[in-house]
Computed example of a mutant assay.
Amino acid sequence: MTTLYAVLLAAVNVGKRKVPMAELRELLSGLGYDDVRTYLASGNAVFATAEEDQDALAANISAALEDHFGFAVPCVVRSGKYLSAVIEACPFPAADLAGKQLHAVFYSVPVDAQRYADIDREAFLPEDFRFGDRVMYLYAPDGLGRSPLAAALAKPAGRLKGICATSRNWNTVKALAEMAS
């Protein structure tokens, strides 16, 4: 059975880590994936395959990207069904918020609140974060770029050692879920 997946590349198209979307489409097609489409220029693509192991897909794509571009490109692969479930499970009033106010941080493995126990959540209100299935929902009313909470969550750098984490704003999450449905 063929499934539609989204691949979310981490930390690309900033600085010298350029991954042109046309090349990403060609690379994914060259790996044998079908119906390859990209969304925006920030490392998002949707593809179809009969392969069911999302971790194996991510590892395969990451290795191919490193081979092609010459630098490591961690990525997360999630099915359209999973993305729809993330939207449904959102603990924040997504319908009442602008897309830049709500973000989903996708993890390669399950991550829980204990990993962030040192964060004084009260100190960052009204900003807040909650966890779901391999995802953190981050409410940042002034946007991610101005979010003190987002900066605190990113430190220390070793907090997520060995884990791929990549963030998308809510508009992108919804668009990818739609593309992969």
Results as ranks from 00 to 15, higher is better:
Ala59Leu: 11
Ala59Asp: 14
Asn60Val: 08
Ile61Tyr: 02
Ser62Phe: 00
Ala63Val: 01
Ala63Arg: 13
Ala63Leu: 11
Leu65Arg: 01
Leu65Lys: 00
Leu65His: 01
Glu66Gly: 05
Glu66Met: 06
Asp67Glu: 15
Phe69Leu: 05
Gly70Trp: 07
Val73Glu: 01
Val73Met: 02
Val76Asp: 04
Val76Tyr: 02
Val77Tyr: 02
Lys81Met: 04
Tyr82Met: 04
Tyr82Ile: 03
Leu83Val: 04
Leu83Glu: 01
Glu88Met: 04
Ala89Met: 06
Pro91Gly: 12
Pro91His: 11
Pro93Asn: 07
Ala94Glu: 12
Ala94Pro: 07
Ala95His: 13
Asp96Ile: 05
Asp96Trp: 04
Asp96Asn: 12
Ala98Lys: 14
Ala98Glu: 14
Ala98Phe: 03
Gly99Leu: 01
Gly99Lys: 08
Gly99Gln: 10
Lys100Pro: 01
Leu102Val: 10
Pro110Phe: 12
Val111Ala: 13
Val111Gly: 13
Asp112Cys: 07
Asp112Phe: 09
Ala113Arg: 14
Ala113Ser: 14
Arg115Ile: 10
Tyr116Cys: 05
Tyr116Lys: 06
Asp120Val: 07
Arg121Tyr: 04
Glu122Gly: 11
Phe129Gln: 03
Phe131Trp: 02
Arg134Gln: 14
Tyr137Gln: 06
Leu138Ile: 08
Leu138Met: 08
Leu138Ser: 05
Tyr139Arg: 02
Ala140Gly: 09
Ala140Lys: 05
Gly143Tyr: 13
Leu144Gly: 02
Gly145His: 10
Gly145Val: 03
Gly145Ile: 05
Arg146Trp: 07
Ser147Arg: 03
Ser147Val: 04
Pro148Thr: 03
Pro148Glu: 07
Ala151Ser: 15
Ala151Val: 12
Leu153Glu: 04
Lys155Asp: 09
Pro156Ser: 09
Ala157Asp: 15
Ala157Thr: 13
Gly158Lys: 14
Arg159His: 07
Lys161Ser: 15
Lys161Glu: 15
Gly162Ser: 10
Ile163Thr: 15
Cys164Gly: 11
Ser167Gly: 12
Arg168Pro: 09
Asn169His: 09
Trp170Lys: 03
Trp170Thr: 09
Asn171Ile: 04
Lys174Val: 01
Lys174Asn: 12
Lys174Phe: 00
Ala175Cys: 05
